[in-house]
Amino acid sequence: MKVKNCLLGIVFSTFAATSLAASGGLTGQSAPDFALKSSTGENLRLSEYRGDVVMINFWATWCGPCRQEMPLLDELYSRYQRVGFSLLGVNIDDDSRKAMNMVSELGVSFPVLFDNRKEVSKLYEVDAMPVTVILDREGTVRHVHHGYKPGYEEKYLDQIRSLLRE
């Protein structure tokens, strides 16, 4: 019985480790650079934010949790922007007009970029909606969050604060 339990434990721990590794494939690596057109019409390049703690939030208009999460992210952005925190919302809709409508409806102030060709979301292995990636000042991926559940904003807050202190 004990042996069986042990084996089961090993199997589960291996499975958990594999799934963790798969979900955080980019963690610890240098964030892939990209440039996208923003809602204001200007082009923004990620590497120009080097030196800031950067959060990249991939979202879509059809995603309910994204709608829930975006105003909370905007609060974080307005609070920490002046101490070196940047937030880039990357919309993956085919039609950027829908995204523009949602942005104005929600009244978010952070820059929203349009990844119509889905090139950036492929680079960041976006396999869920939303996906939130947090980079440190050196441009290294430190945290990757798949999906959103109420309470995640607390995690984001802790992680941003600790990265800002580094």
């Binding site: 440039a35 996208l36 057109k37 120009e48």
Partner: peptide, 8 residues
């Protein structure tokens, strides 16, 4: 296909 930022 290269997008230029203001800085560039």
């Amino acid at each position: 296909n290269y997008l230029y930022t203001e800085r560039e």
